[in-house]
Amino acid sequence: MINLYFLTLFPAIIDEYFSESIMKRALEDNIIRIHSINIRDFANNKHNRVDDYPYGGGAGMVMQAPPIIRAIKSIEHYQEIPIIFLTPSGTTFNTKECQKLTLKLKACKSIIFLCGHYEGVDQRVIDRYVTDEYSIGDYVLTGGELPALVLADSIIRHIQGVLGNAGSLTEESFESNLLEYPQYTRPQKVEDMSVPEVLLSGNHAQIKKWRKAKSLEITQEKRPDLLKKEK
């Protein structure tokens, strides 16, 4: 059986998707098992708050690292499971990437999807725990649940027994141009990782310069085609 874990603030979105059609049949046939894990259950405050203001200032809120890390560690053998983060900074998901991810899933029988929200996730979670980052296109959604479901649906279809006709797979077809800089929020230190000093300096000119440099660096590394478009 294949286990799919979704770390999310809205587990009902995930559960609803798997209540119909091919995905429902895959569940009923015990081909897959879905685990919708509510990140709020791992908050350590009475209001189950899991977000905070970004270091360095800026609009919106950032999901805190500790609740997410606790949610990840609640999964048995999480160290051996691919952890997928859905982000505009990720590799564009396509047929080739789907095949790669399907092979990983078949090998370890489990996969974890981290669904972000608000302005994003504290970068330290990504640096330490995420194994793969994927994007489903150059646009922004309100959360990572829909992209996670897109990837899940795409790879589940490649699992033996999910499609009634296995031949279906072989017959199928195929606003700045910079990615966002890393985000950090409280606490200032997570495990042995600290927030970059420039974001604590209060020097807005230096913060702006750092963010622009990081955006260029990340774009060059992950989506150099965007820089070509800018030219």
Rank of each mutant, 00 (worst) to 15 (best):
M1I: 09
M1F: 04
Y5F: 15
P11N: 10
I14M: 02
D15Q: 15
I22D: 07
K24I: 04
R25T: 07
R25P: 04
R25I: 05
A26S: 14
A26Y: 10
D29W: 08
N30P: 01
I37R: 08
K46W: 00
N48P: 00
N48V: 00
R49M: 05
R49N: 14
V50R: 07
V50T: 11
Y55S: 09
G57K: 10
P66F: 10
P66K: 11
P67N: 05
I83E: 01
G90S: 05
F93G: 01
F93I: 02
N94G: 12
E97T: 13
C98S: 15
K100P: 00
L101V: 12
K104N: 08
K106L: 15
F113E: 04
F113L: 07
C115Q: 08
C115G: 07
G120L: 02
G120Q: 03
Y129P: 01
D138R: 14
L141D: 02
D153P: 06
G161Y: 02
G161S: 04
V162M: 08
L163S: 05
G164A: 03
G167N: 15
L169H: 01
E171T: 11
E175D: 08
L178W: 04
Y181L: 01
Y181W: 09
P182I: 08
R186T: 13
S194W: 08
P196L: 11
L200Q: 10
S201M: 09
H204M: 12
Q206V: 13
K209R: 14
A213W: 01
S215K: 10
L216N: 09
I218M: 05
Q220T: 13
K222W: 02
E230Y: 10
